Simulated scan of single mutants.
Amino acid sequence: MSFFIYAVLIFLVIRFSVTVFNFISNPKLPKVIRHYHDKVSILIPARNEEDNIIELLHSIKNQDYTNYEVIVMDDQSEDNTFGLVNDFCSVNANFSIVKGEPLPANWLGKNFACHQLAAMATGKYFLFVDADETLSRGLVNSLISRMEMGKLALLSVFTNQVMKTLGEKLTVPLMHFILLNLLPLRLVKVSRNPALAAASGQCMFFNADDYRQKLWHQQVKNQVVEDVEIIKLVKQEKFNAEALLANGLIHCRMYKNMHESLAGFSKNLLAGFGNNVFILLFYLLLVIIGPIILIANFNISLLLLPLTLIILSRMMISYLSGQNVLVNLILHPLQMLFFLIISMISIKKYISKTGTWKGRPIRTI
């Protein structure tokens, strides 16, 4: 057996071990029945979100939490986002919307919107969420409970993903697959090493005093994967941070079709690998090309172990992330194909510096 085949199998066993660790440790946000009363600022950057944001606002209004303010930042929207939200705010006193300032040089849009929102917020905690999400009852209390228990400066939650079209089902599960197959999520909190860092910008819950002191979004103003860079900074500054799975407490429909999925994931996939093309290509070689070579050889003794590990991994990851186990098993080969396609698009955008998002260029450094 060649050295390469050994390397593929060893990497597969390592990834499987990480998945087993995540499955056993069950890194989900615990649901609590205790009610808290600290003021929470729910902060929402919104650019061209007229199709999504009202559902989010209704879900916040239906929370079993009363001491909160909601501030929506209309980030130079070209649709009716401002008008719809303004109408909602006019009959809901806890909600307000403001127009964002023009985007300065050397800032990315979402990072600047979050920075402005934090400057306006008055709560003890800052909860940043995206406009395409919905909050379930109990989320805010559960976030505060976990924050206080761990004396955290930042708690980030990987949301449960809503997928309706085939295009979404072929791409969106890749996010949890990569995360839970590579990183023991519990170690984000346990380890002081900033390299062991993961976060989701879809749900970032900050201690407001720490945020005001460090201005986290300003420190990562031009970073595409600002969520991961922020949690690295938090750990470097010796604050406590944690990343957990949503446990059904917050949902997001990131994209609505294949085109949106390809554009969205290719925007930041390479950045998630440190903008290192060679690391991403090496990962693809071991995770996708290697198993294809094993299958092409069609040696039963070689195939049995990797197939078993892949199937069990997909089952555990699907369960942890609240996704359909059978669908992910059936679609796994096609999902890997689209992972390869997204990677190539991401590399092309990075090299040619042609990445855009919501009509704005993405400047990578």
Rank of each mutant, 00 (worst) to 15 (best):
M1V: 08
F4T: 00
I5L: 06
Y6I: 02
A7E: 13
V8D: 07
L12R: 12
L12M: 12
V13K: 10
V20I: 11
F21L: 09
N22I: 04
N22R: 06
I24R: 08
P27C: 04
K28P: 00
L29M: 06
L29N: 03
I33V: 09
H35N: 13
L43Y: 03
L43R: 01
P45S: 07
S59R: 07
Y65F: 15
Y68G: 03
Y68H: 10
I71Y: 02
D74T: 01
D74H: 08
E78C: 01
L84F: 09
V85P: 01
D87Q: 14
S90V: 00
S90K: 10
L103G: 03
G109C: 04
F112H: 11
A113N: 01
A119F: 04
F126P: 00
A131D: 07
E133N: 09
E133F: 02
L139K: 06
V140D: 10
S142G: 06
L143H: 10
R146P: 00
R146C: 12
E148L: 12
G150A: 12
S156K: 03
S156M: 05
S156I: 01
F158P: 00
Q161E: 13
T165P: 08
G167M: 08
E168Q: 15
E168P: 06
I178P: 00
V188Q: 05
N193W: 15
A197W: 11
G201L: 03
C203I: 05
C203W: 08
M204W: 12
F206C: 03
Y211P: 01
L215N: 13
V220R: 05
N222G: 00
V224Q: 12
E226M: 04
L233R: 11
L233Q: 11
K238G: 00
N240F: 12
L245T: 02
L245H: 04
G248H: 09
G248D: 08
H251A: 05
H251W: 15
K256L: 05
K256N: 14
S261G: 08
A263E: 14
S266L: 06
K267Q: 14
K267I: 07
N268Q: 14
L270A: 05
I279L: 15
L284N: 13
L285V: 03
V287I: 14
P291D: 10
I295G: 04
N299M: 02
L304K: 07
L304H: 04
I310V: 14
M315N: 02
S318N: 05
Y319W: 15
L326K: 10
V327A: 14
I330L: 15
L334F: 15
Q335N: 06
F338P: 00
S343T: 12
I347S: 04
Y350S: 11
I351M: 13
G355C: 07
W357N: 03
R360M: 11
I365F: 15
